[in-house]
Every structure is written in structure tokens, then in C-alpha cells.
Simulated assay, not measured.
Amino acid sequence: MAKTQLNVRVDETTAAAARERATQRGISVNRYIEELVQQDAGEAGRTFVEAAADFMKQYESVFAEEFGGTARHGGPGEGGRPGRR
């Protein structure tokens, strides 16, 4: 994957902490920051999926009533529509 340069300004305390943590892990500061962003993006994705699952669970009966049938569990590819068999 091609790399893009990103310039970021942080205070000296934050910069020192980033350098120290990267050194402790045996990686460059660039790689350390890249991993932090990837980790954060992954957390956001998981948080969204968990929130969506909670929402669907909470309102499952409302969807079942609105769209007919009983509340069922299933995933994409099961019965042609997500959440139905």
C-alpha cells in the first residue's frame, strides 16, 4: 500500500511519550502512530456494530410487527434478507 505523508503538531510532552512508547515497542514513531489510528478505527467499527446489534435487539418486535412475521434471528444470505429466514 502506498504511503502518504501526514504532518501533525503535538506538544513536546506528547511527542516525548510517543517516542518513548515507540522505542519500547521497537518500532518507529510513524509506525506507532499508524497502529494507534488503525486500532482506533477498529474500535469505532466494533462500537458501531455493537450499538446496531443492541438497537436491533431492543426494537426487534417493532420491526417484526411492521414487516410481518415473527421476530427471527439470521444473517445476510439466510432467506435473502438480513435478519429473516
Score class of each variant (00 low, 15 high):
Val49Phe: 12
Val49Glu: 15
Glu50Val: 11
Glu50Tyr: 08
Glu50Cys: 07
Glu50Gly: 03
Ala51Ile: 10
Ala51Thr: 15
Ala51Glu: 11
Ala51Asn: 10
Ala52Asn: 08
Ala52Gln: 15
Ala52Trp: 09
Ala53Met: 06
Asp54Thr: 12
Asp54Val: 07
Phe55Tyr: 13
Phe55His: 14
Phe55Asp: 09
Phe55Leu: 14
Met56Asn: 10
Lys57Ala: 08
Lys57Met: 09
Lys57His: 15
Lys57Gln: 14
Gln58Tyr: 12
Gln58Thr: 15
Tyr59Ile: 08
Tyr59His: 13
Glu60Ser: 10
Glu60Val: 03
Glu60Gly: 01
Ser61His: 11
Val62Trp: 10
Phe63His: 03
Phe63Cys: 05
Phe63Leu: 13
Ala64Val: 00
Ala64Met: 01
Ala64Leu: 01
Glu65Val: 06
Glu65Leu: 14
Glu65Ser: 14
Glu66Asp: 14
Glu66Ile: 08
Glu66Lys: 13
Phe67Tyr: 09
Phe67Pro: 01
Phe67Ile: 06
Phe67Met: 11
Gly68Gln: 06
Gly69Thr: 03
Gly69Val: 01
Gly69Lys: 01
Thr70Asp: 06
Thr70Gln: 06
Thr70Asn: 05
Ala71Leu: 05
Ala71Met: 06
Ala71Trp: 00
Arg72Pro: 08
Arg72Gln: 13
Arg72Met: 12
Arg72Asn: 11
Arg72Lys: 08
Arg72Thr: 06
His73Arg: 08
His73Asn: 03
Gly74Ile: 05
Gly74His: 07
Gly74Asn: 05
Gly74Arg: 01
Gly74Thr: 04
Gly74Glu: 03
Gly75Lys: 09
Gly75Val: 15
Gly75Gln: 11
Gly75Trp: 13
Pro76Asp: 14
Pro76Leu: 15
Pro76Phe: 15
Pro76His: 13
Gly77Asn: 03
Gly77Lys: 02
Gly77Ala: 03
Glu78Pro: 01
Glu78Cys: 07
Glu78Gln: 14
Glu78Gly: 07
Glu78Arg: 08
Gly79Ser: 04
Gly79His: 06
Gly79Asp: 01
Gly80Phe: 05
Gly80Met: 05
Arg81His: 09
Arg81Ser: 09
Arg81Ala: 08
Arg81Asn: 09
Pro82Arg: 10
Pro82Trp: 13
Pro82His: 05
Gly83Asp: 01
Gly83Met: 04
Gly83Gln: 01
Gly83Pro: 00
Gly83Phe: 04
Arg84Cys: 03
Arg84Asp: 00
Arg84Met: 02
Arg85Tyr: 06
Arg85Val: 05
